[in-house]
């Protein structure tokens, strides 16, 4: 096991983990933070913390699930730090919908899908971080509810509650219609 190797002194064994798990962590961090540069920083900080605390990893959760938990905490911390700074800046509009992967075959269909997706991303950004994390772990990263609970360090019932409330709040935000760009 790679983690075992690292703890036994083979630090290079951590590199394949970084290569394998950077994409899913970046995806989570991007949607948690809503931006490219801060997402990359969050992934870097996640691996730093994981490497530092690797000795405390007890193998009960999958390595990726454990990393998700760290990543969510990193994003929460970053959000708290930057909230004040962000408030001083201008609103970014509906930026989170911009950098999308893989364009579809049909331009029009792709366009409307992008708009729809951009709107959902915008609404997602307006959710409280705790609810956003629960929804992303459950539906984007497809973790079972038990693992969502474990990585958010809450009970299964509380995780279900956050997922339910997240969906309800998201429904409310999406039905309000697009709003991000208005001054």
């Amino acid at each position: 096991m790679l983690v075992e190797n690292v703890l036994n002194g083979d630090a290079e064994s951590f590199t394949p983990l970084v290569r394998a798990y950077t994409p899913p962590l970046y995806n989570l961090a991007f949607k948690m933070t809503g931006g490219g540069e801060s997402a990359a920083e969050a992934v870097q900080e996640t691996f730093f913390r994981a490497y530092r605390d690797l000795g405390r990893y007890d193998g009960r959760a999958r390595v990726l699930s454990w990393l998700y938990g760290i990543c969510v905490n990193v994003c929460h911390d970053a959000g708290k730090r930057s909230r004040k700074a962000r408030e001083r800046e201008e609103p970014i509009g509906d930026g989170p919908g911009e950098s999308l992967a893989a364009p579809g075959p049909d331009a029009e269909e792709t366009m409307s899908r992008r708009q729809e997706e951009g709107r959902l991303r915008g609404c997602l950004q307006r959710l409280p971080g705790t609810l956003r994390a629960a929804l992303l772990l459950r539906y984007q990263e497809e973790l079972p509810v038990g693992e969502v609970a474990a990585q958010l360090e809450i009970g299964v019932s509380a995780a279900k509650m956050r997922i339910r409330r997240g969906l309800e709040m998201l429904r409310g935000l999406c039905s309000e219609g697009p709003r991000g760009g208005t001054p």
Partner: peptide, 15 residues
């Protein structure tokens, strides 16, 4: 909709 959100790809060389 949440499941279908496109995965955001890290910049080249990040890992």
């Amino acid at each position: 909709g949440l499941r279908a959100l496109a995965h955001d790809v890290p910049p080249e060389g990040l890992a």
